[in-house]
Nucleic acid binder design. Sequence first.
DNA 1: TATAAGAATAAGAATCATTCCGATTTAAGG
DNA 2: CCTTAAATCGGAATGATTCTTATTCTTATA
Lengths: 138, 138
Amino acid sequence: MDVGSIIKRLEAGGHKLTPKRRAIVEILLAEGRHLSAKEILQALQGKFPRVSFDTVYRNLHLLEEMKLICALEMQDGGCRYQINLRDDHHHHWVCLGCGQTLEVPECPLPVLKKAAGAVKFKIISHRFEVYGYCEGCQ
Amino acid sequence: MDVGSIIKRLEAGGHKLTPKRRAIVEILLAEGRHLSAKEILQALQGKFPRVSFDTVYRNLHLLEEMKLICALEMQDGGCRYQINLRDDHHHHWVCLGCGQTLEVPECPLPVLKKAAGAVKFKIISHRFEVYGYCEGCQ
DNA sequence: TATAAGAATAAGAATCATTCCGATTTAAGG
DNA sequence: CCTTAAATCGGAATGATTCTTATTCTTATA
């Protein structure tokens, strides 16, 4: 995933490529790890001193809808964002030490579909995140 | 799970049995379903008009630590609480229509332990909730 | 290049759940 | 009954997120 392909996907979706929108993507690409909305705002203020939280959230929501980034729910309820390296649905091992994430190789939901069917439950969405420590942080 | 056994567990943990604490447990038992902190506060105000949010949250956190209730993260980020009918760790099918929950028969984590080991990730905690519609609400 | 239309933005107020604070009250054991 | 730590109150504070309104860009098209 590079800036070029992200820009193409934005344009294909009928969205404008504004300087701030591009900068948010570049920040996420450069950092690699997941960032909070506040961290993104602060990084953005380097180039655009007058940028607002509203702009950060609006663009993060847009990028998330287009599946260009993914939102990680943290243990404390806060949210962090990172470039979606893969294009498909997946979950994360989230390191509580350094903040790096690794991808969980499979989604647990398919295994449970039969159990849901047994109680006639129609699945709409789910959340799954695993918190702990990566090899380096243990 | 009844009021008596909950009181015993509180006393065993060295906690006082205050009228408000008992009332919160009774409200959760009487309602059966999961309630938000606000709903609990409002129900509590019937008996104790001057009770504060602080008291509600303090007691909910205590009851959660003692595993007497479980906290459900909702899709919108809010939290709801219900009596922990079983004594062990489990997850829920959460109905977006009526708010009822059904217990997921197994936790997906054990299946993924091997994958975590493969990347030397030390698991500390996890979140898993499934949202959808129960049979009656579809 | 000019312009129109809609999309995006700024600024800061508003919201909402949750937590914190200092002062006061209360449960439970001796 | 007394003591003491725990629990409570009332309300302010916090912090992330969303909303509102006026303004400014982008892009497409003339």
